[in-house]
Design a protein around this nucleic acid. Structure first.
Lengths: 221, 221
DNA sequence: GTCAATCATCTTGTATACAAGTGGCGGTGC
DNA sequence: GCACCGCCACTTGTATACAAGATGATTGAC
């Protein structure tokens, strides 16, 4: 833990902003004010700008001198390559140093599975997205290859906004989406019990692929 | 081209520092001075620190409050996961939107092939590394999937230092390394002529794999 | 002599003042 | 009425002063 403490602060701001962008609190095209954000987080512009710079490197923001800092678009067409890469990478998570799930992890995942059932009954698009992020972060812990884990995380946040965007435009059948996701979690739970990381990865790949197909159908091509 | 001009300056500094780290001008463990670097580039610490922050995110630097900014180690053991991931990713470059090589590109590559022959005769470890970077950048232009290209570039600079480190410790047979690399370029040239991106990717994968094996044998495990 | 505490000096991290740049608003000439 | 020019408010980018932190030397007590 050679962390300086400052690094933690940067990470916290970066994570929070990334979360807000992903949940469309800051929708695509929105102009962000550096001074306002700095006040929100109780820091000056300097450390805040470090977080903004990283988000810009990650493709979630774009700054223009003298104009403003804007949330980037999340169009399916532009992010199709990201989706295709995600498909391949998630399959790699089953082959490159997969971390076996112990009893504690399975208990943790079962808790998620329980909550998933609730969401099917009385969930909203936003609650579902928050839950999806939590599930994703949990599944990241099974990736032993650290650089692969980092890339996966980056690509996830680039593409996840699309689902919520279409969902809020009522282009998606939420009940159907919730039900499919719950089914995916049940399948993953089986793969965890079977201690078969490759199968787990292929399950995820299949669902990402199908989700992408549904988004394509819902999106005005 | 909405680039503000400032972005270009950041990129230039980032690229130059990355190059110096990769070529061991700044060897692992070296302490970098922000003020000195700022003077070198003719800017203040503020924009320089943005480049340093990005290099830290990319794993090439590490800063400690009150102590200094240090070049990270490039041990084969720690970067084995990066190598394994590179193996898989380079294979993907042949499947995800590969860009066919036109006549102009083949001419460009042939020029590299010519220079490669010279290096076999009278090259040094450093000249070879500079050339390797140039070849790598050229091959990047065949990757149509942009996020894949970005990840490839990041991982390359993380691992490339290892070769030069071992080479300067006289742990590698330079003549053999040069000869093998020239052979790889000849094979790649054939794949370009054959317009077979998948074969090209597999050739690269094979050579990365063999290079990794040689590094493992040369490294004191 | 040895140990410990304090201070000097260096580093990175932060806050703030200022420069560079953009866009809009209004005045002005016609 | 309309086109054009200049000014002004606002934003991001940069430079600089200052705070926080760490290391090593130095000085003092014992």
């Amino acid at each position: 833990m050679a962390e300086t403490g400052a690094r933690d602060r940067h990470e916290a701001i970066h994570h929070e902003l990334r979360r807000r962008i992903c949940l469309l609190d800051y929708p695509p095209g929105m102009k962000l004010s550096e001074t306002e954000l700095a006040e929100d987080f109780g820091v000056s512009r300097t450390p805040l700008r470090r977080a903004l710079a990283r988000l810009e490197d990650e493709g979630l923001l774009q700054s223009q001198h003298g104009v403003g800092t804007f949330v980037t678009d999340a169009s399916l067409a532009e992010l199709e390559q990201v989706y295709q890469l995600r498909l391949e990478l998630v399959e790699l998570t089953g082959r490159l140093d997969p971390i076996p799930a112990d009893a504690a992890y399975r208990a943790r995942f079962d808790a998620l599975l329980q909550r998933s059932a609730d969401i099917v009954d009385r969930g909203t698009a936003r609650v579902f997205t928050e839950f999806d992020i939590e599930v994703f972060q949990t599944l990241l812990d099974l990736i032993g290859n650290q650089p692969l884990r980092q890339v996966q995380e980056r690509l996830y946040y680039q593409t996840k906004r699309i689902w919520l965007t279409l969902a809020m435009q009522a282009k998606l059948d939420l009940q159907e989406e919730f039900r499919i996701f719950h089914h995916e979690l049940e399948a993953i739970s089986l793969a965890l019990d079977a201690q078969d990381p490759a199968a787990l990865a292929q399950l995820q790949r299949a669902h990402i692929s199908m989700s992408f197909k549904r988004l394509q159908q819902a999106s005005p091509s």
